[in-house]
Amino acid sequence: MSEGSIEARVQRSLYAARRWHPAEIMFWLLAVAAFFLLPRQLLILNEIAILGLFAVSLDLILGYAGIVSLGHAAFFGFGAYAAGLFAKHASADPLAGLAVGMGAAGLLGLLTSPLILRGSDLTRLMVTLGVALILGELANSLGWLTGGADGLQGIMMGSVLGLFEFDIFGKVAYLYSLAVLFVLFVLARRIVGSPFGLSLRAIRDNPLRASASGVPLHWRLVAVYTLAAAYAGAAGALLAQTTQFVSLDVLAFHRSADLMLVLIIGGAGYLYGGLIGAVAFKLLQDVIASFTPQYWMFWIGLFLVLFVLGGRELIHGGIKAVVGRVARLGRRSPT
């Protein structure tokens, strides 16, 4: 076999990882179709899109770089408050507010990243949890700024791009969140397929070999933590803007814990896990809450236990089978 053909095969292999799979295109078409097919569910669809974006953020650090976090809500909440305050006091423009939310959360990520560079998973869990708790308490006590336990009220959002006014049915809200999710998702997809993304996987797989391969671990982790924080901030900003309200709940512990659950359901390390997990989690929540509104956490807990103990392979196997079938359809259809 000649050298040239090996080169071509290397290129093909590297390309395969970033090629758009038919199942992916289907996924996004379904997300758009949902707007037309489920006109009365747009508010929950909006929540799913936001949770999905938040989960993509966690996947960037957990699935790709191997950083566990029990306090990812810190960035979500910080972004939500930043966007809310910006809308209230500076400008009602949604995209500017989104940028502010991302920037603020990204900065917080950058500043707190030294805390997660060293230590074991347990240390990281505790440190991230601690940061989120501190922020939650700050938001609670700085009532003059955040509205404290009453929440940040009086946010009036302007129209998206000066064209689309937010409405009570959540039409614009869902499309706005979905568009932001899509753009940031495509960006994340590109990043994880870059040399930088490959080095993150190297760090996750084996830090010792990564450093012996010339990867500067600390700088890469700082970079991805900052990026993920900005993503979480974007999700928080979307929530603040589309609900025109920010409560202390955005920083609550359960938000970080739920997020972990979302990513475990969907699977970490391939970006779509966060989105699939978000859909599954919200549907589960909705279904269970409809027959037992008070005790739905009980069922979620039971589901989690069963899922982690054995159902995960089953469900992920099922997803893979479906994806494979779609792929075969996609391959057959052009001919």
């Binding site: 590297l14 390309y15 990882a17 970033r18 590109r190 990043i191 397929g193 870059s194 040399p195 930088f196 993304g197 490959l198 080095s199 391969s213 010339g214 990867v215 500067p216 890469r220």
Partner: peptide, 13 residues
């Protein structure tokens, strides 16, 4: 990493 590409976030491998 040897070619100094590790900081490229958007380039396709």
């Amino acid at each position: 990493e040897r070619l100094g590409r590790g900081r490229q976030l958007l380039r396709a491998l």
